[in-house]
């Protein structure tokens, strides 16, 4: 057990700690490099101060087909600022000198494949990244790539969606580690007015096939929705809403602080949800 624990990623340790404390988790998504990587470092620290458990770093891609307008535009800004994976890894090394917050990347397959998958994954692990969510790598294609992540000591975060049948969920969770990301509705990333009504049911279905923690995301945009999502899930993910707020805050320190307080209010709403 001792040696197993040594090998745990920061993501796994975080969920173990949350479970021991009887708390739900909060995962925040931001695009790495929007508006530049220096700002991203500050945003990661702000998220940590706000009580966020895991930071999900979107790696900007020229053709983000799973993303809605907010994250598309955010990726464009990051690319215009010259963001690439090498720079992101450098930025993560900088963060790691002072912070142990779990970090995962949300990325498209070509960004890992083009520079050489194995080499890139090893660099990510070495920089201090704990897990990868590869949007366009379904379980059918995951085989060897999943092993590469495992060998590098990274979690492979997999998606389940409302269109995923139960038999398929069973296959998907075989490759999964860290946690399973339940997408609360069909569609792209983006802000929604209310949580999809079948989100709870999706989490229930997933519980039947895995003992891994379940995070619920896609579309959550305020404390009430975050709390509602946390009822069934072990953690909630908030993405586009944070990206949008921080972009609109611009360079104003006061407005940046206000966004941090708003994130803290969402985190607190989630932390107040009792664990059954």
């Amino acid at each position: 057990m001792w040696s197993e624990k040594e090998k745990m990623t920061r993501i796994e340790k975080n969920f173990t700690a949350l479970q021991a404390a009887g708390q739900k988790g909060f995962i925040a998504y931001i695009t790495a490099g929007d508006p530049n990587l220096d700002a991203t470092v500050e945003h990661i620290y702000a998220l940590e101060r706000a009580g966020v458990d895991i930071v999900e770093l979107g790696i900007p891609f020229s053709d983000p087909l799973a993303d809605g307008p907010v994250n598309q535009e955010s990726a464009m800004r990051a690319l215009d600022a010259g963001t690439n994976l090498k720079g992101v890894f450098e930025m993560v090394r900088q963060v790691r000198r002072v912070s142990d917050i779990p970090l995962m990347c949300y990325c498209y397959m070509n960004l890992l494949y083009a520079p050489g998958f194995e080499r890139t994954v090893q660099q990510a692990a070495k920089a201090g990244i704990d897990g990868l969510l590869i949007l366009d790598l379904p379980t059918e294609e995951a085989g060897d790539y999943a092993r590469t992540l495992q060998d590098a000591g990274l979690n492979l975060i997999t998606l389940i969606t409302p269109t995923t049948p139960e038999a398929r969920m069973r296959r998907i969770v075989q490759h999964a580690s860290g946690f399973v990301y339940a997408v609360s509705r069909t569609g792209v990333t983006g802000i929604q007015k209310s949580l999809a009504s079948d989100a709870g049911e999706l989490v229930q279905r997933a519980r039947r096939v895995t003992t891994l923690p379940l995070a619920l995301g896609f579309g959550i945009a305020d404390p009430a929705q975050a709390a509602a999502a946390a009822q069934n899930a072990d953690a909630v993910v908030v993405g586009s809403a944070i990206v949008k707020q921080w972009h609109e805050a611009g360079a104003s320190a006061t407005r940046q602080k206000r966004v941090e307080r708003w994130i803290r209010s969402m985190v607190q709403a989630v932390k107040e949800v009792p664990v059954q």
Binding site: L65, D136, E141, L159, T161, T163, P165, G187
Partner: peptide, 20 residues
């Protein structure tokens, strides 16, 4: 059976599209 032509092809899509 997996949708490959030699080493090319396959199904690299988000999970939501796999069932359809």
């Amino acid at each position: 059976r997996r949708g490959y032509y030699g080493p090319y092809g396959g199904m690299y899509v988000p999970e939501t599209l796999m069932a359809p």
